[in-house]
């Protein structure tokens, strides 16, 4: 099963809509509540990162029996130093974005903590690709 969402950079009015849609799908699919909570936190942070930092992006959610594999691919400035970006408290968000309570430098850490596996690749001046993988417990029914 695959779902795709387009994200517009700077559009804070709709930030979180994709995460909200995915949350509803996970509920319909009866995905374990704890797993679903982790996915939602990681996905929301990743979605907001596209809104706050990129020009546009696409979120692709692939659901199969064993895992949920989310790919967030954006066109944007890219990340110069991924290790530095991963440090808690480090952020390049604008003052306006910070005033809204975003840009505290906690997003990537939240993503890493909540995903079973996270992969980031980035090219300066082109964009960033984030993959979030959550494993589903095999159905023992």
């Amino acid at each position: 099963m695959q779902f795709k969402y387009k994200i517009a950079g700077g559009d804070f009015t709709n930030a979180g809509n994709a995460s909200s849609a995915v949350k509803k799908i996970l509920k319909q699919l009866n995905v374990d509540h704890t797993v679903s909570k982790h996915i939602v936190v990681a996905l929301y942070e990743a979605e907001v990162n596209i809104v706050a930092h990129a020009y546009s992006g696409v979120i692709e959610v692939n659901i199969d029996k064993n895992q949920i594999h989310i790919i967030l691919d954006d066109k944007g400035p890219g990340i110069a130093d991924i290790d530095q970006a991963m440090e808690e408290g480090y952020s390049t968000a604008s003052p306006q974005v910070r005033e809204m309570g975003f840009g505290a430098g906690m997003g990537l850490a939240n993503m890493k903590r909540n995903a079973d596996k996270m992969l980031i690749s980035s090219e300066l001046g082109k964009g960033t690709k984030v993959e979030l993988i959550h494993y589903l417990k095999p159905d023992e029914g």
Binding site: F12, T13, A15, G16, N17, S19, S20, K23, V40, V41, Y44, M100, G101, F102
Partner: peptide, 15 residues
């Protein structure tokens, strides 16, 4: 919170 913009709803609802 003292935040009043729409994004608080997304966070509250997701959580």
């Amino acid at each position: 919170t003292l935040q009043t913009h729409k994004n608080v709803m997304a966070v509250a609802s997701l959580k």
